[in-house]
Design a protein around this nucleic acid. Structure first.
Length: 979
RNA sequence: GCCCGGGUGGUGAAAUGGUAGACACGAGGGACUUAAAAUCCCUUGGUCCGUAAGGGCUGUGUGGGUUCGAGUCCCACCCCGGGCACCA
């Protein structure tokens, strides 16, 4: 019988499904191992060969751990809320739940084809009310919590209320952290608190809740009636439709992730995550140490707060710059300057943050006309507004030190009234040329900092600030609180209602708050989110929140739900959570470095703080699979050409030329100037002959590349011209279309790009499976290279893994008859087996799957050469192969006479006894260059090896009678003779 | 600019400081076959010498260094990929 994956794969998939082979119990007698894949968003495009890469790797580990006696949780589900389904719904009117359902069914079918060992009874979907009930529940817990900075933990809001009743609150109170809005909450005493009305109390509490409503800057697009992300705004207009976008302050639900900034940094140290992801998170959180400095306003009460990492440069302050959004701008600007300043503010703040940050060269700003007082010198410092200062970072104001900060320098240089006021702050530096940003400089400014090194000056400056009451040490984080409300339909409703304009959490008994039906998935006419279209969207007559949660809400805790996916009483039972605990291996793409992976950690820490789980990091080990890129194919067309005549002759214009497709050979030829005769010939029938008279050079101005679907390519990048022509004819009705062939073929240009539908370079796993089977696909994806590395998909190599499986199969067969002997294996056969077991076992633990596949190939080649058909070799080998190629392993396991599934088999242990070598063939090198090989017994000591080597005639001959300077013998490795 | 990865044959790649290129694809040659498919065998980094057996030189982005010995460690640089970025 020949190896034919079609029948056996089909058969086993059905059997596994019927037997619930991959069902996992919360069986506490076995040690647990939790293998998690980042769950997919079920897009309409389905899976391509890149998606399963990580799933296959984690599946191998899961199966391996199971063979090794672990109770392995290896679940899968869907991150099924999201924008694409909503956009599709807007276009087609089809309910997103419906398209999502269809897409999930398709995903499931594709996933099933690859035979993952998922326990599908544990599937979760974030858009399922039974699931998002708990997402909403967690939201309420966040709403009902505050962060105690002193104890570094989240606590119930009731405990904060108790504090307020006893001691009130003061901004300097170190224990109650308010995160981003810290400055906005003014002090109040216990008595004042008690005197507050219900409304006032709740408004105050919003400044402390971990999920809170506050005014936040957003990109508001009135025409679309929605808030846009930074990258949806280009040059002040929306990317879609080009409508004007304004920066606007709107009430927004946010998550106080900033409260966890330090713990999110500290927690990284204990994690087995790649250094690059950890670094990305550290950068994202962006801790910087420095000082908060207060500059008293000259004409008014109050002061401008500034964060600086370089208080040592305080004597170099020449001006203070406020962000255009800064609330003081309007207040401090004197009447005579108001018109000019506010005009600037209007234009500046409506530029998106991204635009403002991208334009490094363009300096813009305006003098407010107001002054503040330098805390050390008492001198007046002019206050400017500049868009290089961002409202959302630090305090939205900077002390500008042109002598020490290049951006400040650039700003000063740009304005004549500031240009000559730059103050040098370091020794040996010419401030006219630029800023000195060195951190190993010596301060040369006037005052008490003169002569100090930068670190000493920083300490001294802060001490002085504290003494004067003009500032204090401050640690600032770049991390901002996360916007949590979305003006969208297809997301979790936020379980909040409004009484008297202030938010209240729904009682737990009202959960889940189900997504209401709406007539359209668009904002209302007056710009309310889609949920406002729902009839009777109220609770006890009070209006319900109309924004929904962002995509990352459901994925921030899903790993917990898999532990106990149907629990109706709790997000997961305490026992289940205690048993499964942290994810032992988390597999997913590195593109989630600062999004999902940060929120995931944040929510875990929060649930830990509130006592729901006993660990505060979700995943011990994280592995990022590389991206599988597609190799796109392009056609190149010359739509219009410019013809250059001899100098002095007019160029004809307005001519209609054929759409001429030229192959890659011609494209590269065009790079060199000349008269490209083939092109001229192709054009001749279409243009007047006079066009070509006296033509000396042909310049082609526009070569338009078009993606060509890769399934239109035949052998060696040749295009199926007639099929492609049909496609082009549809896009350019009535056009002349010609293909310029090279050796009778049209060859496409190839390029490695991201694999995506729009690039027509998607390779579908189903196609591969129907041709070679899932086992081959699994092996091939692993064989491609190290799991973390990105690599282009090239189906050409797949034959090798298919051949390997066939050879493996044939070890069990002789002339198409199943024949496995019970004869005792030879030493050589055992050696192959145990070498393979050793390598594969070690490689799986290192997640080096490409090398384990290679080892299997070596084993099969060697056993084939030995004509080994022995049970004691093949049986363990089959178990070892099972995690990689489960179908063929299960089939052969059955044929070997086993009744139970191979998944229940114990992992075979390798035995070092079989790997012992009697002899070792030493490479003998002279000055590090290998010249010959000599075989000696392994047991021979270094001295004896040296003597034996030197006695060898060939060595003697090479030495030409001279004595070697030195002989290095590394037992069982190498001999190096230095001459 | 900063922070992470990475650079090895025609291709995907392998290599605890110890024989660079395992394994696989592709290519070339051969066997079997009426033929094809399938299978099997041989060759395959470059280059030079040799009829051959065989041998020499060279070779892991570039230039230095450490070492008996460097793809691997150190320094400087170049290129590619990813992330971050007027972050005060």
């Amino acid at each position: 019988m020949q190896y034919d994956p079609k029948d056996i794969e089909q058969k086993w998939r059905q059997k596994w499904k019927a037997d619930k082979t991959y069902k996992v119990d919360n069986d506490t007698s076995k040690p647990k191992f939790y293998v998690l894949d980042m769950f997919p968003y079920p897009s309409g495009a389905g899976l391509h060969v890149g998606h399963p890469l990580g799933y296959i790797a984690s599946d191998i580990v899961a199966r391996f751990k199971r063979h090794n006696g672990f109770n392995v949780l290896h679940p899968m589900g869907y991150d099924s809320f999201g924008l694409p389904a909503e956009q599709y719904a807007i276009q087609t009117g089809q309910h997103p739940a419906k398209t999502t359902e269809v897409n999930i069914a398709r995903y499931r079918e594709q996933l099933d084809n690859i035979a993952f060992s998922f326990d599908w009874d544990r599937e979760v979907r974030t858009s399922d009310p039974a699931y998002y009930k708990w997402t909403q529940w967690i939201f309420i817990q966040l709403f009902e919590s505050w962060y105690d900075h002193e104890q570094q933990t989240a606590r119930p809001i009731s405990e904060l209320i108790a504090r307020f009743e006893q001691q009130g609150w003061h901004p300097a109170d170190p224990s109650a952290l308010t995160g981003d809005v810290e400055e906005e909450q003014v002090a109040f005493s216990a008595d004042e608190w008690k005197a507050f009305g219900e409304r006032k109390r709740r408004e105050t509490l919003l400044h402390f809740r971990l999920a809170y409503l506050s005014e936040a800057w957003v990109n508001w697009c009135p025409a679309l009636g929605t808030v846009l992300a930074n990258d949806e705004v280009k040059d002040g207009v929306s990317e879609r439709g080009g409508h004007p976008v304004e920066r606007k302050r709107m009430p927004q639900w946010s998550m106080r992730i900033t409260a966890y900034a330090q713990r999110l940094i500290d927690g990284l140290d204990g994690l087995e995550w790649s250094e690059s992801i950890k670094e990305a998170q550290r950068n994202w959180i962006g801790r910087s140490e420095g000082a908060l400095v207060r500059f008293k306003l000259k004409e008014a009460a109050g002061d401008i707060e500034v964060f600086t990492t370089r208080p040592d440069t305080l004597f170099g302050v020449t001006f203070v710059t406020l962000a255009p959004e800064h609330e003081l701008v309007e207040a401090i600007t004197p009447a005579d300057r108001k018109a000019e300043v506010m005009a600037y503010v209007e234009t500046a703040k409506n530029r998106s943050e991204r635009d403002r940050m991208a334009d490094v060269k363009k300096v813009s700003g305006v003098f407010t006309g107001a002054y503040c007082i330098h805390p050390f010198t008492g001198k007046e410092v002019p206050i400017w507004v500049g868009d290089y200062v961002l409202g959302g970072y630090g305090t939205g104001a900077v002390m500008a030190v042109p002598g020490g900060d290049q951006r400040d320098w650039n700003f000063a240089e740009h304005f004549p009234e500031l240009r000559d006021k730059k103050i040098a702050i370091t020794e040996g530096w010419n401030v006219a040329e630029g800023a000195d940003e060195r951190k190993d400089a010596t301060i040369s400014s006037e005052g008490f900092l003169k002569g100090l090194s930068v670190p000493d000056a920083i300490t001294r400056a802060i001490d002085e600030l504290v003494k004067l009451g003009a500032g204090e040490r401050r640690i600032n984080y770049r991390l901002r609180d996360a916007a949590f409300g979305r003006q969208r339909y297809w997301g979790e409703p936020i379980p909040i209602y409004y009484k008297d304009g202030v938010p209240y959490a729904l009682p737990e008994s009202e959960l889940p708050l189900k997504l209401p039906e709406v007539d359209k998935f668009l904002p209302t006419e007056d710009g309310e989110p889609p949920l406002a279209r729902a009839t009777n969207w109220t609770y006890n007559g009070y209006p319900l929140e109309t924004t929904t949660m962002p995509g990352w809400a459901g994925s921030s805790w899903y790993f917990l739900r898999y532990m106990d996916p149907t629990n109706a009483e709790r997000f997961a039972s305490q026992e289940a959570v205690d048993y499964w605990g942290q994810v032992d291996l988390y597999m997913g793409g590195s593109e989630h470095a600062t999004g999902h992976l940060l929120y995931f950690r944040f929510w875990t820490k929060f649930l830990h703080d509130r006592g729901y789980i006993n660990f505060d990091e979700p995943a011990k080990k994280l592995v990022n699979q590389g991206m599988i890129q597609g190799v796109s194919a392009f056609s190149s067309a010359i739509g219009m050409a410019t013809w250059k005549y001899k100098v002095g002759q007019p160029t004809p214009s307005g001519s209609t030329l054929p759409l001429l497709f030229i192959g890659r050979g011609y494209v590269s030829k065009l790079a060199t100037p000349g008269l490209h005769q083939e092109l001229v010939e192709a054009y001749k029938p279409h243009v007047p002959a006079s066009y070509f008279e006296g033509l000396e050079q042909l310049y082609v101005k526009h070569v338009v590349d078009r993606h060509v679907s890769i399934d239109m390519l035949t052998e060696g990048d040749a295009l199926d011209v007639s099929r492609y022509q049909e496609v082009i004819e549809k896009d350019f009705p009535g056009a002349f279309i010609e293909f310029l062939l090279e050796d009778g073929k049209y060859l496409c240009r190839r390029e490695v790009e991201k694999m995506s539908k729009s690039k027509y370079n998607v390779v579908n796993p189903d196609d591969i499976i129907s041709k070679y089977g899932a086992d081959t696909l699994r092996l091939y994806e692993m064989f491609l290279g190290p799991i973390e590395q990105s690599k282009p998909w090239d189906t050409n190599g797949i034959e090798g893994t298919f051949r390997f499986l066939r050879k493996f199969w044939n070890l069990f067969y002789e002339s198409d008859v199943f024949r496995v002997s019970d004869e005792a294996p030879t030493k050589a056969e055992f050696k192959v087996l145990h070498a393979t077991l050793k390598k594969v076992t070690e490689d799986i633990e290192k997640m080096s799957f490409n090398t384990s596949v290679a080892q299997f190939m070596i084993a099969v080649n060697e056993l084939g050469a030995l004509k080994c058909h022995k049970r004691d070799v093949l049986e363990p080998l089959t178990i070892a192969l099972a995690p990689f190629a489960p179908h063929i392993a299960e089939e052969l396991w059955g044929q070997l006479g086993h009744k139970d599934s191979i998944t229940t088999a114990h992992w075979p242990k390798w035995d070092a006894r079989y790997l012992v070598e009697d002899n070792f063939s030493y490479p003998i090198s002279f000055n590090g260059k290998t010249r010959l090989q000599l075989e000696f017994p392994v047991a021979l000591d270094a001295k004896s090896v040296e003597a034996a080597v030197l006695a060898d005639p060939e060595v003697q001959q090479r030495l030409e009678g001279k004595a070697p300077k030195k002989v290095i013998v590394v037992p069982k490795r190498i001999v190096n003779i230095v001459v």
